Amino acid sequence: MTGWTPVWVGIAAVGAGFGSWVATAKRGPNQVVIRTAIILTLTCCYMMWAIIYLAQLHPLIKPKRADLRFEN
């Protein structure tokens, strides 16, 4: 996996958001609420996934193995 994965997933999320925007066209009085809920859900899910993915890709603290013995 590379650092480009969040970019491609972001493009897919934007595409899904646009698709949901078009799919909820003229669906009644709650159209704006439905669109807002879908777009906010996609945005929050993408941001949560991207932050966790990038934190694992480039950790701030180098992991240390605890099962090693120190040689004298």
Rank of each mutant, 00 (worst) to 15 (best):
M1L: 15
M1K: 15
G3E: 07
G3C: 03
G3L: 04
W4C: 02
W4E: 07
T5I: 13
T5G: 09
T5R: 15
P6V: 03
V7Q: 08
V7F: 15
V7S: 12
W8V: 13
W8E: 14
W8D: 13
W8G: 15
G10A: 09
I11G: 05
I11N: 10
I11E: 11
I11D: 08
I11L: 15
I11H: 09
A12W: 13
A12M: 14
A13E: 10
V14H: 12
V14E: 10
G15V: 12
G15R: 06
G19L: 10
W21I: 11
W21D: 12
W21N: 15
V22A: 03
V22E: 09
V22S: 00
A23M: 15
A23P: 13
A23V: 14
T24N: 13
T24Q: 09
A25Y: 15
K26N: 15
K26E: 14
R27E: 11
R27N: 12
R27D: 09
G28F: 07
G28H: 11
G28W: 09
G28T: 04
G28E: 07
N30F: 09
N30K: 12
Q31G: 06
Q31W: 04
V32R: 15
V32Y: 10
V33I: 09
I34V: 06
I34R: 11
R35T: 01
R35N: 03
T36M: 05
A37V: 02
I38C: 05
I38T: 09
I39V: 10
I39K: 02
I39A: 12
L40C: 11
L40G: 06
T41L: 06
T41C: 04
L42I: 12
T43D: 10
T43K: 12
T43E: 00
C44R: 12
C44H: 05
Y46H: 07
M47A: 14
M47W: 07
M47I: 09
M48F: 03
W49S: 02
W49Y: 04
A50D: 00
A50Y: 01
A50L: 02
I51M: 08
I51Q: 11
I52V: 06
I52P: 02
I52E: 05
Y53E: 06
L54E: 05
L54I: 00
A55H: 10
L57Y: 11
L57H: 09
L57W: 12
H58E: 05
H58T: 08
P59G: 04
P59S: 01
I61C: 02
I61G: 01
K62E: 14
K62A: 08
P63N: 00
K64I: 07
K64N: 05
K64W: 06
K64S: 02
R65H: 08
R65D: 03
A66T: 13
A66S: 14
A66E: 13
A66M: 08
A66R: 14
D67Y: 04
D67I: 03
D67S: 02
L68G: 01
L68D: 03
R69Q: 02
R69L: 04
F70V: 01
F70W: 01
E71F: 03
E71M: 03
N72T: 04
N72S: 05
